[in-house]
């Protein structure tokens, strides 16, 4: 099994690690039993544009790299656009993932969707 240079770069120097200040949409997916937990923090403005995003991830190299890449890809986008981000978009941006690691990219897309849902729920209140 080998990771692409982009994956390694995103693992060694991940972008957007931590908790964004003023996050108003937080999503967490995964299970410790299966070895991955991904938590995404979104700061969304009144026009529903994602101003900033960050992550905290318990998982393998692919999980960290997927989180880093996915958060990077949605900053500046509307929540509508961001919700459309698919796991294959993340895989492509990473230059590919080994077959056994594809689920990490799925997790990233799902965590973003969960964070957006959380934002919508908070907004309704």
């Amino acid at each position: 099994m080998e990771y692409t240079d982009v994956v390694m770069e995103n693992f060694t120097c991940p972008k957007h690690v931590g908790e964004v200040e003023g996050a108003n949409g937080i999503g967490q997916v995964g299970s410790p039993a299966c070895g991955d937990i991904m938590k995404i923090f979104l700061k969304i403005n009144d026009d529903d544009i994602i101003e900033d995003a960050s992550f905290k991830t318990f998982g393998c190299g692919a999980a960290v790299a997927s989180s880093s890449m996915a958060t990077d890809m949605i900053i500046g986008k509307s929540i509508e656009e961001a919700a459309k981000l698919t796991n294959s978009d993340v895989v492509d941006a990473l230059g590919g993932l080994p077959d056994v690691k594809i689920h990490c990219s799925v997790l990233a897309a799902e965590a973003i969707q969960a964070a957006i849902e959380d934002y919508k729920k908070n907004k309704k209140k």
Binding site: P14, V29, S31, P32, K56
Partner: peptide, 16 residues
Amino acid sequence: MSPINAECPIDDAVFE
């Protein structure tokens, strides 16, 4: 980098 820690231990981590 991890979402789990002493305050938010693994067994209590909310997950779907």
